[in-house]
Amino acid sequence: MIGFMGDVTLDTLKPGAAAHVVALDARHPLRRRLLELGFIRGARVEVMRFAPLGDPVHLRLGRTDLALRAADLHGVTVRAVQGGV
């Protein structure tokens, strides 16, 4: 499934966009913490907004809100929700 055409990294999404988690970089510094928070395959993640200075990014995962830096979003591969952008 990895390498599917619609797959992008999470840092490319704009506020308001939603996507499903496809993969998580094995060397991601936050791999464990992200799993803890429910970044499991198929989980729906939505980009809420960027912080005042453009970074970090406010995300909603399921019903949990969290913030990650754009650099840390690069290691998360997602597939856009149909019609979600």
């Binding site: 510094p29 913490r33 928070l37 970090p56 969290l66 913030a67 650099a71 840390d72």
Partner: peptide, 8 residues
């Protein structure tokens, strides 16, 4: 190091 996560 790097990697920052904040819960809201």
């Amino acid at each position: 190091g790097s990697g920052v996560l904040l819960e809201l």
